[in-house]
């Protein structure tokens, strides 16, 4: 079999090097598409950026006009025997090129806020991270114990899970207005939205993880004289801990997806405020940079937690992947 054919054998295991190459490829491929669209004029470029207005009275240098409009004006000027406008193909303002976004990564942090009392980008980011953190912590403080208890004691599970199952279909943002009415316009309702969005999934997922625990482990513990609460604290909890940790990583990712909606509730704050503000000034390079920063923080923290998991649970070989 050729090398490529080997890579595409069903369920084939990849070597470390292949994994790295393909993993980088997964990022490079979309970047390549973006570069093509941005730098190769005939791929898209539906606009023309005016370089000199010529005889067209409403054209200005740097103005973006539709290709068709520009062509019409060139024809008009030629007919009127006036100076022809000059321009080159361009993409719409909402699709900046990769290098512009790359530059924005730096300038977004160094640019002073438009007004003195407005936050810098890093302050907005820190605010967002705090909202996520508290939302996730509050959800976990109740959700993790309830999930473990529901998974261990069938009666307790039955007493809450049908309702939780129902509640998790109610979209968290729908509680926005209610949350503002109860908790005010600042961080309270935002944290509440993240809690509502995370908690109900959390109970069900962790209860399910707990239920998957091999019954033999529990039975072995019982024949060794373990009973009552010790069965929970000394057997169930340590046994499910690696899976619980993995669940929490996934749930933290979900909490991030609720962030933007949550931050729009009440007074807009954090990274969402930055994004809407920059979009209002048509600084789309900053918008893209900010969106990517969310991705980098989320993905980066998950990678770190994954590494940490391997350290924390040396006996659990399933931590090695994923």
């Amino acid at each position: 079999m050729g090398t490529i054919a080997k890579w595409f054998a069903a369920r084939a295991r990849l070597g470390a090097q292949q994994r790295t190459i393909l993993g980088l490829g997964s990022f490079l491929l979309p970047l390549l598409v973006w570069c093509m669209v941005s730098y190769v004029p005939f791929v898209w470029h539906p606009k023309v950026v005016v370089e000199s207005p010529g005889g067209v009275d409403y054209f200005q240098v740097g103005m973006l006009v539709d290709k068709a409009v520009f062509k019409d004006e060139v024809a008009n000027m030629r007919a009127a025997n006036l100076l022809l406008p000059q321009g080159k193909p361009a993409n719409p303002i909402y699709l900046p090129a990769p290098h512009e976004v790359a530059r924005a990564f730096y300038t977004a942090f160094t640019a002073k806020p438009e007004q003195k009392d407005l936050p810098w980008l890093h302050q907005s980011l820190w605010h967002s991270i705090q909202v996520i953190f508290w939302g996730f912590v509050i959800s976990s403080v109740f959700g993790v114990p309830l999930g473990i208890l529901s998974g261990t004691y069938a009666a307790l599970g039955r007493l809450n899970e049908p309702f939780v199952e129902f509640f998790r279909y109610l979209p968290a943002p729908a509680f926005g207005a209610l949350a503002v009415a109860i908790l005010g316009i600042y961080d309270g309702p935002k944290i509440a939205i993240i809690v509502i969005g995370t908690f109900f999934q959390q109970v069900l997922i962790i209860a399910n993880t707990t239920r998957k625990l091999d019954a033999t482990i529990l039975e072995a513990a019982m024949t060794l004289g373990t009973r009552g609460l010790k069965l929970l604290t000394r057997v169930v909890v340590p046994a499910i801990l690696p899976d619980l940790y993995r669940d929490q990583r996934i749930l933290l990712g979900w909490a991030w997806t609720y962030l933007i909606v949550a931050e729009l509730i009440g007074t807009s704050t954090g990274i969402t405020w930055f994004i809407t503000q920059q979009a209002r000034y048509q600084h789309f390079d900053n918008v893209y940079a900010a969106i990517m920063i969310i991705g980098i923080i989320g993905f980066g923290s998950d990678l770190l937690l994954g590494r940490l998991g391997r350290r924390l649970f040396p006996w659990d070989r399933s931590q090695d992947h994923g």
């Binding site: 033999t216 072995a220 659990d316």
Partner: peptide, 20 residues
């Protein structure tokens, strides 16, 4: 009445605690 340490048990499946 119920399981207890006066009757030790060895199971067919691997019943060791993997985290210990």
């Amino acid at each position: 009445d119920g399981p207890g340490s006066d009757r030790g048990m060895v199971f067919q499946g691997y019943s060791l605690f993997p985290w210990l």
